[in-house]
Design a protein around this nucleic acid. Structure first.
Length: 85
DNA sequence: AATGTGACAACTC
DNA sequence: CGAGTTGCCACAT
């Protein structure tokens, strides 16, 4: 199904994030056509439950994890493992 | 069309 | 370090 253009961009970008790499919401938005839509990125990820999209690799600019639709617990574990590699 | 919302970011105090 | 305010964008209703 064809989602909004922005949503598609975000999903594709996040799907392209290499393992062990963490991007910030702003960085992801910068990769899209709307460099200032970092808030929309979070809003989209919140509704997106696609396991093919490693949204756990997207964190805040502060370096904090931010949030995760499956529970911050899970996100922390995943990052702790991937980043350590 | 309009309003409310938020997994954000940067600034101020 | 923390709490409060403003700006910003897309999405849901």
């Amino acid at each position: 199904m064809k989602q909004s253009h922005f949503r598609e961009e975000v999903l594709v970008i996040i799907r392209a994030i290499p393992l062990g790499t963490t991007l910030t919401y702003k960085q992801v938005a910068e990769c899209t056509s709307s460099p200032r839509a970092y808030r929309a990125v979070g809003a989209i990820l919140r509704m997106n439950f696609d396991p093919a999209v490693p949204c756990h690799r997207v964190i805040r600019s502060d370096g904090t994890l931010g949030g995760y639709n499956r529970g911050v617990r899970r996100k922390r574990e995943l990052l702790k493992r991937e980043r350590a590699i």
